[in-house]
Simulated assay, not measured.
Amino acid sequence: MSSWKADPSALFERRLGKSAKELGNSDGRDECPDIWRLDNGDVAVIGTDLTDAYASRLPGGVTLAPYERLVVVPGNMFTAAGEDVADA
């Protein structure tokens, strides 16, 4: 079994859940957390990069490769995506 690799040629297919604006998580200018299904079935998450803030306190068994980033999105955005994620 080979390890999973992100495909940078995958295209955005559909938003999972609601937009940041719909949820009141954006002032409409430059904040735009989001969750998207890609056309290859993978999921793209746009959020605040908190890799450095969490690096020293990751739970046991959780590691980040040098090319990975830990991002955080608003909880209400993830909750709103719940039904869409189940159907993804």
Score class of each variant (00 low, 15 high):
62 V>R: 09
47 G>T: 00
66 P>G: 14
51 T>E: 01
40 N>G: 04
41 G>A: 03
82 G>V: 09
80 A>M: 04
67 Y>A: 15
77 M>V: 02
87 D>Y: 15
73 V>I: 08
80 A>D: 03
85 V>M: 13
56 S>C: 13
74 P>S: 00
86 A>R: 14
52 D>E: 14
81 A>R: 02
52 D>C: 10
46 I>M: 09
49 D>K: 00
41 G>I: 04
42 D>E: 11
48 T>S: 14
80 A>N: 02
42 D>P: 07
80 A>V: 00
66 P>C: 11
59 P>D: 10
73 V>M: 03
40 N>E: 01
52 D>H: 14
42 D>K: 08
68 E>Y: 06
44 A>H: 09
58 L>P: 05
85 V>T: 06
63 T>C: 07
62 V>H: 07
50 L>E: 12
65 A>K: 15
65 A>N: 14
60 G>E: 15
72 V>T: 12
76 N>E: 09
63 T>M: 13
54 Y>H: 14
63 T>N: 13
70 L>E: 00
70 L>K: 03
53 A>I: 12
47 G>M: 04
69 R>G: 01
64 L>C: 07
87 D>I: 04
43 V>W: 00
72 V>I: 11
70 L>S: 01
44 A>Q: 08
79 T>M: 11
60 G>L: 11
47 G>R: 01
42 D>M: 07
81 A>V: 02
70 L>C: 06
42 D>Q: 07
66 P>R: 10
44 A>Y: 06
43 V>L: 05
45 V>T: 08
61 G>K: 03
61 G>M: 07
86 A>M: 10
81 A>S: 10
65 A>H: 12
48 T>R: 15
60 G>Q: 15
79 T>G: 12
69 R>F: 07
60 G>W: 12
80 A>K: 00
